[in-house]
Design a protein around this nucleic acid. Structure first.
Length: 206
DNA sequence: GCGACAG
DNA sequence: ATCTTGTCGC
């Protein structure tokens, strides 16, 4: 199924110009009695000023375990519900996880982009698959993430001297644009604002 | 058989 | 992802 979805993923830019809004999505977990509950959060921001325009959270039972390579089946259902609870559809989504930098080229960012028919970017805090050289220490330095000879993403330093982020095409956004946009969305912290705020919101006490 | 392994 | 205390650097 993932290979089928991967075949439909678009790796070239096909997004509005200018990009007006961007949404970040993330999911956190917590024990509620016996079962683990999942809470999804979506935050809508102005893509230029990074001002928060809207935010939403949803909560539900966890239905799938964490298995490397199958994160989509654990998080996507909650993430989609949270995104649809926003007052408007964004021009672009940023996800906490890989896009095509995945064994079958179908990480959660790609799967979500295709399912929602929205441009998407994968911005992960660690590597799932592939290899690359260590990027330079300066903000903006990056090195290609390779699986054999195929470029599947980039290791990008969003903050000088701080651990890099792992960026990949989600859907309808080229790798070059994904890198540029993540730098635009992360002017101050390691994580881009959309996912940083969604992460914080998903963990905030109800 | 062993190690790696988004969140 | 979650839990948990101190520690290091800007």
């Amino acid at each position: 199924m993932q290979r089928h979805v991967a075949a439909a993923v678009e790796r070239e830019d096909r997004l509005p110009e200018p990009i007006r809004t961007v949404a970040g999505i993330d999911v956190s977990y917590g024990a509620r009695g016996r079962a683990t509950r999942a809470r999804g959060a979506a935050v809508l921001l102005d893509a230029q000023t990074l001002e928060v325009l809207d935010q939403a959270t949803v909560e539900c039972a966890t239905t799938f375990p964490y298995i490397p390579g199958l994160l989509t089946f654990r998080e996507a259902p909650v993430a989609i519900t949270a995104l649809e609870a926003l007052s408007a559809r964004p021009d672009l989504i940023v996800c906490d996880g890989q896009g095509i930098a995945h064994p079958r080229r179908c990480g959660v960012a790609s799967h979500l982009g295709l399912a929602l028919d929205l441009p998407s970017i994968g911005a992960a805090k660690s590597r799932l698959t592939g290899f690359c050289d260590e990027p330079g220490l300066a903000r903006g330095s990056c090195s290609p993430l390779l699986d054999n000879t195929e470029v599947i993403g980039a290791c990008l330093r969003t903050r000088t001297g701080v651990a890099p982020m792992w960026i990949s095409i989600g859907h309808r956004v080229s790798l070059a644009s994904a890198i540029r946009l993540v730098l635009q969305f992360a002017p101050r912290f390691r994580m881009p604002e959309p996912t940083r705020l969604a992460d914080r919101l998903s963990k905030a006490r109800a």
